[in-house]
Design a binder for these strands. Structure first.
Lengths: 351, 351
DNA sequence: CCCCTTCTTGCAAGCGATTGCAAACAGTGT
DNA sequence: ACACTGTTTGCAATCGCTTGCAAGAAGGGG
């Protein structure tokens, strides 16, 4: 289709009165080129409106200047933010992005990884939380530079960037404990995801440190999405002895919790403390603003691209793992426990 | 990089004991192939784990099986939804997507369009609301199939899909009028965008029909994003005679308005009616749920891809324009105006 | 003024796949 | 058995660009 009247390197060569190879060298910034020749070529390129054909370029051994991004889906606010960071970094590096979504279709990841590895891209960043990292071997075999995001892989041989989920969850739990809460419930993320599990660990650790060991029934399953937060909260709030604080493993789920609370006529944080994890943009907008564990989402994306570019530009640098810090953002949705449903409150009340 | 030990069509050919061309034909589902040969080739492909090299394939004249998507950015909920629809349609058609964002960088659109048109993709869907459609000529010159989304272009020669913004806005305004509102304010979208302008027209028409002609100071500028809605609302609500209803040209902005109202201690819809446009998922989640004009966002994306695929598969079908219908979704954020005295007591603080 | 080194630049061989053309094969009808 | 039609395959040219190799040009030292 597009092959009609395409301006090739040879057209430029002819107008500039040089050979095709010379044009190629000019285009690729080769150094040993007479200034005058370079100028002529540049002029010809300009005149003809030459644009390199990515396909041919990469087929012949050059770079594609495209970075592949493999994600599960782009529905969540977290992913949107992550993609922003990634996109930002990619485009300011002058490269282009090829986004592929697996939409949780099993096997699609491998298919994409193979296809992309087959010359479509110079490098790949993968943000699919899945244990089945079959695609990893493909990537390695073909030695395609790649970076994993938020995926825990025993294989210390792969570059990746993640955040300190465990201590983030821990700190948040301590915050809640400090406020005087004891019956703190956690709604987990999708347990297939490593970071979801780490958050649980952080939560349990903090609880245990406070002498609260029997947390089993306080930890209820969710999947990071809003509806699951809502449903979990409906169930929790309907219990004979409901929790005074709910720690959702994602802000998205926390919004679901808030809704469930509102429907029950409960005020946040007066009757129920609700906190989340992620700090997506919406969190500072909701009413009341959400107390949450902030992870530098866009930064994660930018860092991943940074690592990838390093590897692309100078291969063989070895795998690098980055763990970014999380921080607690205390806003309006958390407060001391209400004494309304007060059972034996052997807890030190705050102000 | 990736060129190490790649399985080519010739490797398959050798294992199957046939020629490369035959393998190519099998891969592309050519008909005149002896069943037995086909079987042998298929077996060899399977055995070697052959994956076609997209670059080579398209260079040689085949298709890339990649659809390019050109958008401004993916931050907004609207865009997220649109991309979902697009992604959905693309992947269920077996093709892949290449997403490029211009991030409002001037000129980037043309650069991308050219590059993509240069063989990277089989077709292109563009969703950049901009008057400057310089890229259009490139697309046409190279006869790359393309579809425009939500872009109004006089050029009846380009396929596009959009929604009926005008009557949507009109109907919403009538709804507000029907509720008894008279001082209805509209916060506009980015005026560079055609659909933003159409919504204003719909609003003005309905107001005029109700005898409300002097709407100039009721229409205030926004840019579709949340903060602009917030700011506009802050200004509106501080007026000596504030509107009783605010019609935001996007749900995003409506959320901003809700926040401004909350900060002023106003209840929605008791003291202020707030409505939006789009019906993004969040709209049914907020409290109170937002009354809005629904546009089938994902559907828009799906339709656009449908049109594009048609054109790719059988070129020359001529341009097709689709205009999808909008519909009014009445939820909790709209109600009759609060009593006239409200303004006299310059928005009294609540409880 | 010649020889050697350092620049510049062109030639030509790929990269992996598609495809027009034509040769090699069948299958039929007579 | 022969010409004829239609099916299967392989050959080789191409797509646009990169790059190793080597030749021509330019500059320095002896």
């Amino acid at each position: 289709m597009s092959d009609r009247d395409q301006v090739t390197i040879f057209d430029v060569a002819k107008t500039a009165g040089v050979s095709g190879s010379t044009v190629s060298r000019v285009v690729n910034g080769y150094e040993h080129i007479a200034p005058r020749t370079r100028a002529k070529v540049l002029a010809a390129m300009e005149e003809l409106g030459y644009v390199a054909d990515t396909r041919a370029r990469s087929l012949a051994g050059g770079k594609t200047n495209v970075i592949g991004v493999l994600v599960d889906g782009m529905g969540s606010a977290f992913m949107t933010e992550l993609l922003r960071g990634i996109d930002d970094a990619i485009s300011s590096s002058g490269m282009d992005m090829m986004l592929c979504t697996t939409n949780s279709r099993v096997g699609k990841e491998v298919e994409y990884a193979t296809k992309l590895a087959n010359g479509m891209v110079d490098g790949l960043v993968v943000a699919i939380p899945s244990e089945l990292s079959l695609y990893l071997s493909t990537l390695k075999d073909r030695s395609v530079p790649h970076v994993l995001i938020d995926i825990d892989n025993e294989d210390r041989d792969t570059s990746m960037v993640k955040v300190d989920n465990r201590s983030g969850a821990r700190r948040m739990t301590e915050h809640l404990l400090g406020l005087g809460h004891r019956r703190i419930s956690m709604i987990t993320g999708n347990l297939d995801v490593e970071s979801a599990r780490e958050r649980i660990v952080g939560f349990r650790e903090a609880m245990a440190d406070a002498g609260l060991v029997d947390t089993d029934e306080l930890v209820v399953p969710g999947d990071f999405n809003r509806p699951s937060g809502y449903e979990a909260a409906v169930e929790l709030l309907a219990r004979p002895v409901p929790p005074t604080a709910i720690f959702a493993s994602s802000d998205e789920m926390a919004f679901g919790v808030m809704r469930a609370a509102a429907e029950r006529g409960m005020l946040v944080p007066e009757h129920l403390t609700v906190v989340g994890f992620d700090d997506v943009p919406e969190s500072s907008w909701v009413q009341p603003a959400l107390t949450t564990v902030r992870q530098p989402i866009q930064e994660i994306g930018r860092r991943a691209i940074g690592l990838l570019l390093d590897e692309i530009r100078s291969p063989g640098g070895g795998a690098v793992s980055l763990e970014l810090k999380t921080s607690l953002v205390a806003r309006a949705s958390s407060g001391p426990p209400s004494d309304v449903g007060a059972m034996q409150r052997h807890t030190a009340p705050q102000s």
